[in-house]
Each structure stands twice: as C-alpha cells, then as structure tokens.
C-alpha cells in the first residue's frame, strides 16, 4: 500500500455517514378526496386509525369535491396551509378501475411538487382498501437504492412505525446495472474481473449495512421503541420488494418521490407505486 490513491481509499472507507435521529414533526395533516360526504367520513376515520401513531395532537384538514378538482389549486392550497402531511389515494378524480397502472394526474403533481410528504392510500372504492390492510403501521419498510446518509427517510419511517413495531430499512443494489458495469470491467485486461466483482459488491453492500447498524444503535439510544431489520442485497427492485412485502406483510412503504433532478419518480418510486397497489405509500 504505497500510493496516494490507495491511502485515500482507506481513509474514505473509514469515513462513515452518521445517522442523526430527529423526531419527525407532523402536526398538521390534510386529507384530499373526491368522495361524497359519507364516504369521505369513512375514509377519514380509516386514515386516522391507520396512522394513529402520529398521536392525538395532530390538526386535521380536509379538502374535497370541487375544491380538490384542479391539481394546481390543490397544490396551492397545500402550500398555503403549510401542512406537514397530505393524505390521499390513487386515481383521485380519475377512474381507478380503468387506470390501475397510473397514480393519476393529481398524485403525479402532488408527489413531485408538494413540499409536504404524501401518504398514498389504495382507492377507497377498490378491493385493496380493506380493514385488514389499514389496521396499523406495525411493519414499515423504507425503500431506497441509496440508504447511506439518508437521515430523513429513516426518521420519517421511524415516525410512522407503531411503538413496538418493525422498521425494515432496505437498500437494494440493482443487479442489472451492476452486471452492466462488470461486463465493461471484464473487457479491460488491466483489471482482475473476479477480484473487482468481489471488492465492488462487498463495498456496495457494506456502507448501507454499516449505516443501518448506526441507525439501530441511535434509535435505541433515543428511546424509540421499535425493532430495526435490514434488507441489503443485490437484485431486481420489484421482485425483491414484492418478496419482502409478501413475506412480512408490510403495512407501509416509505420512499423518496422528489429529488433535484426529478429522477426519483422516474427511477425507483413510480414503478413501485404502480406495482404495489394494495400497500399504502409514504412519498417524501
């Protein structure tokens, strides 16, 4: 080990992202519906029961009917009301039965532009909207392909996990992308392909694993009563998450839907949102 790059690598590897726990503050929640009065009330009741983990001090607001018809007006109302969370459902103001592979225009805009987090429930009139599914948030899973250093995602997921529940922190490295890079490496004679595969794959999984370990310790130290479990592996996002959701009966998925390049919805979040129609999603 005698050159600059080797030592820089050693020091970079020794440099960890630190998880900082900060209790997510959700004081004001806005429910956005297109339902009639009675159905709206039932939806509100179901939502309040589902996210009772937020506590009794939350201020609830609702917009419905014509007030929620135009997406731009809804967005404006959300921003003006300075809510911390928006609760709505798939295919708001659109036909849920014919557009099952779409979230609908309203949600598209809200998930990408609203400054508040958006909780997306199954459509109240759909078969997925069952009492069993919306019972509690005992099993919450944070989904990302870059968990390392993502304090906000972990804090929000922890905030929505019921006391004594399980918070599953996941980091799935896309196997296809990895193989694509490995194919390129295998064509470079100066690089030992087997060694590169071993070292790169180890490195890619080590950082999120270490980060989850610090999350576990920090959450316990902060007195947050939950169990942290990890899902760190290579694979295809959809199939890995499908398997985990089915195996552990996940109640809520937490993921990013916004980023500076507007890539989140085009990358991981949208396909997952469309695929897992029966699981409530918290989009940050």
């Amino acid at each position: 080990m005698s050159n600059i790059d080797q030592f820089e690598s050693v020091f970079r590897a020794a440099s960890r992202e630190i998880y900082q726990y900060e209790k997510a503050s959700i004081n004001k929640v806005m429910i956005v519906t297109d339902l009639e009065a009675e159905e709206m009330l039932a939806f509100e009741t179901a939502v309040k029961k589902f996210i009772k983990v937020l506590g009794a001090g939350v201020v609830w607001e609702t917009i419905s009917g014509d007030d929620s018809k135009r997406p731009d007006v809804v967005l404006k109302t959300i921003e003006e009301s300075q809510v911390d969370l928006v609760v709505t459902y798939r295919n708001l103001h659109s036909d849920y039965s014919s557009q099952i592979y779409s979230l609908g225009t309203h949600l598209d805009m809200m998930s990408q532009k609203a400054s508040a987090a958006v909780l997306v429930m199954p459509h109240p009139k759909s078969a997925e909207f069952t009492e069993k599914i919306l019972e509690n948030t005992n099993h919450v899973m944070a989904i990302t392909d870059h968990l390392n250093g993502d304090c906000r995602l972990v804090n929000m997921a922890a905030c929505f996990t019921a006391s004594g529940g399980v918070l599953r922190l996941s980091h799935v490295e896309d196997e296809k992308s990895f193989e694509h890079v490995m194919t390129a490496l295998s064509q470079i004679p100066e690089i030992d392909t087997d060694k590169a595969r071993e070292l790169i794959s180890h490195r890619l999984l080590k950082d999120p694993t270490d980060y989850i370990a610090t999350c576990t310790v920090t959450l316990a130290e902060a007195g947050v009563h939950l169990t942290v479990e990890q899902v760190v592996q290579f694979g295809c996002h959809l199939s890995v998450y499908r398997q985990v959701i089915e195996e552990h009966q996940v109640d809520l998925l937490v993921m990013h839907a916004k980023d500076e390049d507007q890539m989140a919805m085009h990358g991981l979040a949208y396909p997952l949102a469309v695929e897992f129609r029966h699981v409530p999603l918290l989009m940050l």
């Binding site: 790059d5 030592f7 020091f11």
Partner: peptide, 17 residues
C-alpha cells in the same frame, strides 16, 4: 515520501468531509 502520502491523503479526505 510515505509520511506525505499517508498524511496528505488523509488531509484531503478529512477536509473534504
């Protein structure tokens, strides 16, 4: 030389952090 490599590379990483 080894001293400069070790301390210099750590300096670059830590100041960046």
């Amino acid at each position: 030389v080894t001293a400069m490599i070790i301390v210099g590379s750590l300096t670059a990483v830590s100041l960046d952090k």
